[in-house]
């Protein structure tokens, strides 16, 4: 379970300002979700919720989803609203920091990927590539709350 800033992901223990990420997301959540008209598809939760993932595979999925958001999502979310852009930058840089912390666990073999997480990550990529890049990126950013709820 997570303290305000300590994430326990199986054997991997990571210190992270979840409160800052959560606060940044909360301040743009309504704006970003309003830009996503597709209610019948979830990138992170289709076909199964993240909550179905075995605890032993949480670190792997968190690590790969951090990379997914850093490499594929944030860069395609630029908006006409400078406040939103600044908050996205704040979240993106925090995710970079989180991924670096998770990388240490990965290198110490505390972040193993099993079949279940590999399939889940593959499904997320399929869901993402089923939409055009901007729609997929905005939808993924709008679902950050789902990821944070699950991580915490």
């Amino acid at each position: 379970t997570a303290g305000n800033n300590i994430l326990q992901l199986g054997p991997c223990r990571v210190s992270m300002s979840m409160a800052e990420i959560r606060s940044g997301f909360n301040s743009i959540k309504a704006n970003i979700q309003a830009r996503d008209p597709i209610k019948s598809l979830s990138i992170l939760s289709y076909p199964h919720s993240l909550h179905k993932v075995k605890p032993s595979e949480r670190c792997c999925i968190t690590h790969h989803l951090c990379s997914f958001y850093v490499a594929k999502v944030f860069r395609h979310c630029r908006t006409e609203d400078s406040y939103v852009n600044r908050k996205i930058s704040s979240i993106a840089n925090s995710f970079l920091s989180l991924r670096r912390n998770l990388q240490h666990c990965h290198e110490q073999n505390k972040c193993m990927c099993g079949q279940e997480s590999t399939e889940k990550l593959k499904q997320i990529t399929v869901n993402y590539e089923g939409l055009n890049v901007t729609s997929a990126a905005i939808k993924s950013l709008g679902e950050l709350g789902i990821l944070l709820d699950w991580m915490e």
Partner: peptide, 13 residues
């Protein structure tokens, strides 16, 4: 930020 340098074409905000 570091993110902008590595993933957003060294953009400035």
């Amino acid at each position: 930020g570091e993110y902008e340098r590595e993933y957003a074409n060294e953009s400035w905000i």
